[in-house]
Design a binder for these strands. Structure first.
Lengths: 208, 208
DNA sequence: TGACGTTTCATACAAGTGTTTGATACAAGT
DNA sequence: ACTTGTATCAAACACTTGTATGAAACGTCA
């Protein structure tokens, strides 16, 4: 069992490769044969380590959730004592980093985007552990910025922020066709510009 | 050949059923067996009428595009002479109607959302015929509302509008979990509230 | 009516799928 | 030395998939 250092390597390799392929092809179109091939593992490895294909998928979702907010915390590293403007910028930047960054394997955002279009039963878990913290934090900040708004209005504003962050990632295919020069920008440059754009537009909108 | 009234019925039924199933399951996961079953047609009908599965898919995309902007024109029925504020509201309402309305078969928005996450080669066609008109119209209106902004800034603002319209449809699964009372609202009621929210937030943001 | 083109049908087939099985290798513990 | 638990492997299984085929049914027109 202490040999598991060796065994965990193939297990981890499977999770990593599977994440990428699930994100690229979708759950159903992804084949465990391709996953095992690319992971340098035998076809039966998935069955041995994860019981079946869905067990592997669950592990992929789980590990993605676990490492996601851990690397880019919801508040973007901005403390609760900072101004609400700075806190908003922190949330937006962290969201964009999670969604767009290439340091993270780029497929993680794709996995989540796919889950929203094509839920697979794991959606409540994702919401509980990923969306909820960001959602609540954003509501808190907006309540500071626009206390005069109704509860529903504040909630809609929070969704508008998330909508913009989300859109600029999962519609990047379309955006690059509509505006070719946007495709030339580096990822980090996009994050800078989008953070600035979304925060300033939202702040102005909230005050209007 | 004039008998084709009967044959076109099964052809049309196939397109309609296929659209719904492609939207629900995705191209690969959708099976022509299920499509033919629900359309009350024989298994070989797809092969006969559309050559193969991809031919059917192309026809579905094509017919969706053709009827989409035709029923809900990009400008929402607001004339070019109206105020930019009214025109913006028209665009937003039309977009939300296309995306959320149940009079239209509800799967059409899902088809498009899926194409963005999982392009299938038909994406350029969709952009050319659907996204481009909305995109250009929105840019024109925003140029009226905020002429002092840079070209890139106006473009980003246009995307922010589209992002919000799009998000409230394709993330409705998530939204209903985060805010259960939102799920109780009727579709037309949602459209009213979202139109008001998005236009006012955007107008305030543009002026800030 | 009878020939013809069009459409529908049951059936078959090859390819690809997830899963299972039994054998094998290896290390650790007794 | 023997057993035990873990991990990997090749092979096979049962099933679904898209596609192809040939016969039958249908309506149209001479």
């Amino acid at each position: 069992m202490s040999v598991s250092s060796e065994s965990e390597k193939t297990r981890d390799r499977l999770i990593e490769v599977a994440g990428r392929i699930f994100a690229e092809r979708g759950y159903r179109a992804a084949t465990i044969r391709e996953i095992c091939d690319q992971a340098g593992a035998n076809l039966a490895a998935v069955n041995y380590h994860f019981r079946d294909k869905e067990g592997l998928y669950s592990e992929v979702i789980g590990s993605t959730i676990r490492s996601s907010l851990e690397r880019y915390p919801a508040d973007g590293g901005v403390s609760r004592e900072a101004s609400p403007e700075q806190r908003l910028e922190g949330v937006v930047r962290a969201f964009l980093q999670r969604a767009l960054s290439l340091e993270e394997p780029p497929w993680k955002g794709g996995l989540m985007a796919r889950e929203m279009v094509e839920p697979s039963g794991k959606l409540p878990k994702i919401i509980q552990e990923v969306a909820r913290p960001v959602h609540d934090l954003l509501l808190e900040i907006i309540a500071q910025l626009a206390p005069e708004r109704s509860d529903e209005s504040r909630w809609l504003c929070a969704q508008s922020v998330i909508a913009q962050c989300h859109f600029f990632r999962h519609a990047s295919n379309v955006l690059e066709v509509l505006r070719p020069d946007w495709g030339q920008l580096s990822v980090s440059e996009r994050i800078v510009r989008l953070t600035e754009h979304i925060t300033s537009l939202t702040l102005a909108g909230l005050r209007g």
